[in-house]
Design a protein around this nucleic acid. Structure first.
Lengths: 212, 212
DNA sequence: CTCCGTTTCGTACAATGTACGACGACATTT
DNA sequence: AAATGTCGTCGTACATTGTACGAAACGGAG
């Protein structure tokens, strides 16, 4: 695995392996260097700072966002990509947080390119395409973020205590009695909502153009 | 500011003040303790771990999500809340990342309660309400996350280099020539899309119910 | 051999979270 | 009054982290 020379990519891969195997928190410079059988400070020849390493990890992950094949229907195509995206980021929740300090890399660009490709046959404006894609990524990332948030350790006692105070009548009504109102696959619903609204905008514009 | 006894809330407030004034990175136990004129380890009497402090900060922030007054129209009401949410999280981007390790607190519950209140006059099922609210928060949080991501320091040279390789024809087409395809207020568009799709679902169900 | 760029890495340091246990203040019991 | 206990405070110590600095090893060109 570490035969030829070092490189930023190989370092990122090693770090990624550690994150998967031992958790993101155990990704330290020393640990990565150890895994690569290299002095700690050697890493700093390829990477200016740890933040840069993490950015590289993020971008490495994003390689998995691009799908090998795309359905012709743009809705189906974007759905495929969105499902992949969700999958990737729910398996690596730390990548969401890291995004904030990681500028877009090559694989993020590949992702965008593929999304644009999926929309190439539609009659959308460049701006319309970017709007739709931004909306979808907003939704997908947000979904992954919230879905991987504090769920493991909700303070059930705290919640019960608060519900008992009567300050949350509507919450208590639907939570206290019966089942948790979990929604089956709101993910698809969200995507569909964005699709149809974008479609409406597109044909709206087309009609206006035709009218001139 | 620190007259009476200490409390988890007062500690969270102090930490929040530091985060606002000096950046989230400078929120250390020692720094917070110093601001409160207290020994560092004193904090640990009120807070089991730093993660818990951050969770408290997150929840303190969420107090600002609840609006003082709500329009009667549920669409307008949810829009008001969503705008507040966006505002809060774009002013405190670290809170998004912290969400992942912060279980929902009292103010998160207040937020949910208010959202449910906004939907109380609609004919929606409990499940429909929760679906819509989850979708909206997904979108809003995702929007804030991506909007506060790596933008400050895009490696413009890296991007140009890559675009020049010709591997990104569609990206190059819309980015290289002319203006950056920034979309004006996709935020509203996203909200509207989710609103109308939820409306359609609601009246769909109502019709089906009536038919029986 | 000398020289110089590239690549490797050992040492050292400052900062962090927090485990541990001591210390005082105050209330309650004897 | 004395003893006991709970509550709150905090100093010290330690392991772990990112990384600045500069020294070595290496390899090709002259």
């Amino acid at each position: 695995m570490s035969s030829t020379r070092l490189s930023r990519e190989k370092i990122a891969a090693a770090a990624l392996a550690i994150a998967d195997a031992e958790g993101f928190a155990s990704v330290s410079m020393r640990r990565v260097a150890q895994k690569l059988r290299v002095g700690t400070m050697t890493l700093y020849y390829y990477v200016k700072t740890k933040a840069e390493l993490i950015a590289a990890m993020d971008d490495a992950l994003m390689a998995d966002l691009v799908a090998p094949f795309l359905p012709k229907d743009w809705r189906k195509a974007l759905t495929v990509i969105a499902l992949r995206t969700r999958e990737v980021f729910m398996r690596h929740p730390w990548a969401l947080a890291s995004l904030q300090s990681a500028p877009p890399g090559v694989n993020a660009m590949r992702h965008m390119e593929q999304c644009l490709q999926a929309l190439s046959e539609t009659g959308m404006t460049a701006r319309q395409k970017f709007t739709l894609l931004a909306l979808i990524d907003d939704f997908v990332f947000g979904y992954a973020l919230r879905e991987t948030a504090g769920d493991p350790d909700v303070d059930i006692d705290l919640v019960r205590k608060q519900l008992a105070t009567g300050v949350f009548p509507r919450l208590a009504e639907t939570f206290g009695e019966g089942r948790v109102p979990a929604t089956p696959d709101r993910f698809r619903l969200g995507l569909e909502a964005l699709f149809t609204s974008a479609t409406k905008r597109t044909i709206g514009r087309a009609a206006r153009t035709r009218a001139n």
